Computed example of a mutant assay.
Amino acid sequence: MKLQNNNLDEMQEKKLLEIEHKGCWIAFWGLLVAILVQMLIFDEGVIRSVAGEWIVLFFLSLYMSISSMKSGIWDRRLKPNIKYNAVISLAAGLVCALVFSISSYTKYHVLMGSIATGVIMFIIIFATTFFTLSLSVKMYHKKIRKMETDCED
């Protein structure tokens, strides 16, 4: 089957790219919220209830991360440094700690146990996110250096 020619002019193409961009981010954040809400609502079988959303979110995140890295793009606003890695890791750790604490409390009704669950999850998520972002920053800087040296040759 032969692909049709693009019938859009440059302004329409730009507008369509903006629409697709916003749609992608709505899907990303929507999936994340859906997963978090389902984790809080369902007591049993939570893994089965969020598996589909998690798989889509995982592959969407993986695709966006790898594609951006290959293109030498980090982010529009955030800089690839330790300060932003710490802030993002802190936010991720706090959100996960809150979700797991509430989930634990609704299941077992033990306040200290749910606080302990939240603290443990915060530490694990913060450390994992910070390590992953730091590794990604190193890979990003390596890619940028390679792209700069290729341009100079």
Rank of each mutant, 00 (worst) to 15 (best):
R77V: 14
P80A: 11
E44M: 08
I41F: 08
I115C: 03
S103P: 01
M11S: 12
S61E: 15
P80E: 05
I124D: 00
S49N: 15
A91E: 07
I82R: 00
C24P: 00
I66W: 09
S65K: 11
R77Y: 15
S101A: 08
F42I: 14
P80G: 10
I66C: 10
V46L: 12
A51S: 15
C24H: 08
M139F: 05
W29G: 14
I88E: 14
T106H: 00
V87C: 12
E18M: 07
Q38A: 14
K107G: 09
F59I: 15
Y105S: 03
E44G: 12
K70P: 09
G52P: 10
S101P: 00
T132L: 07
S49P: 06
A51Q: 09
S89Y: 02
H21C: 10
G23Q: 11
K15A: 11
W74L: 14
L98W: 03
V99H: 04
K138A: 08
V95M: 03
S67D: 08
W25L: 09
S134P: 01
H21E: 09
S134K: 00
A97V: 01
A116N: 02
V50M: 11
M64I: 14
V33D: 02
Q12Y: 01
D43L: 06
M121C: 03
G113S: 07
I125H: 00
S104I: 00
V56E: 11
S101K: 00
S104Y: 13
K79H: 11
I26A: 14
L78P: 08
C96E: 01
G72I: 14
C96D: 07
E53T: 09
S67L: 10
I125S: 01
L62A: 15
G93L: 01
L111N: 00
K138W: 06
L78E: 15
T132S: 13
L31R: 04
L111C: 03
V37N: 10
E18T: 06
V99T: 06
Y63D: 06
K142V: 10
I125W: 02
K83L: 11
A86H: 07
K83E: 11
I88T: 07
G72K: 11
T129I: 00
P80S: 05
G118D: 06
F122S: 01
K22P: 06
S68W: 08
F58C: 12
G118Q: 02
D75S: 14
A51R: 07
F28H: 05
C24Q: 08
I41E: 13
S104C: 03
L36D: 13
T128M: 05
V33N: 06
T106M: 04
L78N: 10
M69R: 00
I35M: 12
H21N: 10
K15V: 12
S101Y: 02
F42D: 03
L17K: 12
S103Y: 04
I88K: 05
E10F: 13
E18C: 03
A86T: 13
I102C: 04
V110K: 04
G45P: 10
S101C: 00
F126Q: 01
F59M: 11
V37K: 12
H21Q: 09
I88C: 05
I66L: 15
I82G: 04
I73E: 09
L111S: 03
L57P: 08
L94C: 06
A116T: 02
W29N: 10
W74P: 14
K83G: 08
Y108M: 05
I47P: 03
Y140R: 02
W29D: 13
I26R: 06
E20R: 10
S89H: 03
